[in-house]
């Protein structure tokens, strides 16, 4: 408890896009409940704060920390460990913290290749072919920037995590519900779920919440969304467009398929499923309607970027986590 008697709240972004923060702000007037019930002590995107202030806090003095973003560099790791130490409840918030999300697709390439791509593309003005260095000496002294790790990790591959809240970003109504729950716990009206629980999401899959009609699937051709008029009633996968709904945890209310767009899997693997990409790949390949190897090859060619398609969100959280070259070039 602080001077004003309110429990402390923190939110941090590691390797992430900022969407999670916006989703939190997007809970509209509920944000006032946050303010009414918590003292916000650390939230770099919303208010000024210094790491040394956090370092100075007592261990376990922050009640609730929402941590979004994956662990890409030594700064991310340092703050993750710091916030773990200072927080009672640490929530892996959003897909990046939970499973690596888009940043973790970089786990398919060594850091050097990533850097080369970023610093040599046609749109880059870099005549001296420079690369950022962790330390640079200038007249004023040493400058330091974080060091990239060879692979991106999820939050719980680095520190102990209390709860998991998936989504890219988590849906605002789910965030509001979680905040409500914590407030009720504070007021003694509810109990926290067991440690390790996935919160702010459902226990089944997007398909389960999807209203579309579905049949036994026979896929003769994979199409991309821009090339078809999606039938408003029928399961999107049956129309040949890969929909990740069958493998994705429920929680969003099947928003994308309802809007005529395939589920892309942002809520992560279904409860108990370990490797999202492997699950979805076996499922999708199981319903290819052909026994002829050449025809199957041709049908599969309709998926131009399988890694991006099936592991868009779950690369770091998958069983393999990264490709061999990314591991090797430590």
């Amino acid at each position: 408890m602080t001077s004003n008697g309110k429990p402390k709240f923190a939110m941090y972004w590691a390797a992430s896009c900022g969407g999670c923060e916006i989703a939190v702000l997007n809970i509209h007037e509920k944000i006032l409940d946050v303010d009414a019930n918590f003292e916000v002590v650390f939230w770099p995107v919303a208010m000024d704060a210094k790491y040394k202030d956090v370092e100075a806090m007592e261990d376990g003095s922050i009640l609730l920390t929402l941590f979004n973003g994956a662990i890409r560099n030594d700064e991310n790791e340092h703050i993750a460990k710091l916030l773990r130490q200072k927080s009672k409840i640490l929530v892996a918030f959003g897909s990046c913290a939970n499973e690596g999300c888009v940043p973790a697709l970089a786990n398919l390439s060594p850091v050097k290749d990533l850097m080369d791509t970023v610093y040599t593309t046609v749109s880059t003005e870099n005549p001296e072919n420079l690369r950022p260095q962790p330390t640079t000496t200038v007249p004023e002294g040493e400058l330091y920037i974080p060091t990239m790790y060879p692979i991106v990790r999820t939050l719980d591959q680095v520190v102990d995590v209390d709860y998991y809240m998936p989504g890219c970003p988590p849906e605002s109504h789910q965030i509001a519900a979680v905040i409500d729950l914590v407030i009720q716990v504070l007021q003694g009206k509810a109990q926290l779920p067991p440690k390790g629980t996935v919160i702010g999401a459902g226990g089944s899959t997007v398909c389960d919440e999807c209203k579309r009609k579905r049949d036994v699937k026979h896929i003769k051709e994979f199409k991309r969304i821009q090339h078809v008029m999606i039938d408003p009633e029928l399961c999107i996968l049956e129309q040949g467009v890969i929909c990740s709904g069958s493998a994705t945890r429920s929680g969003c209310g099947a928003l994308c398929p309802a809007a005529g767009s395939p589920c892309i899997g942002c809520y992560g693997p279904a409860e108990g499923a370990l490797d999202f990409g492997a699950r979805l790949m076996t499922a999708v390949s199981s319903v290819i309607d052909s026994n002829k190897p050449e025809e199957i090859e041709r049908i599969l060619d309709g998926i131009p970027d399988p890694a991006g398609m099936f592991y868009r969100f779950n690369m770091a959280g998958s069983l393999l986590r990264a490709s061999r070259p990314a591991w090797d070039k430590k």
């Binding site: 398909c207 579905r214 699937k217 026979h218 279904a270 409860e271 108990g272 499922a283 199981s286």
Partner: peptide, 21 residues
Amino acid sequence: QDKCSGCRICNNLCPFNAILY
């Protein structure tokens, strides 16, 4: 049964026709 979404991916796969929907 709680986890099955009825996506019907499995329906046609069983070589022994053991799956019913």
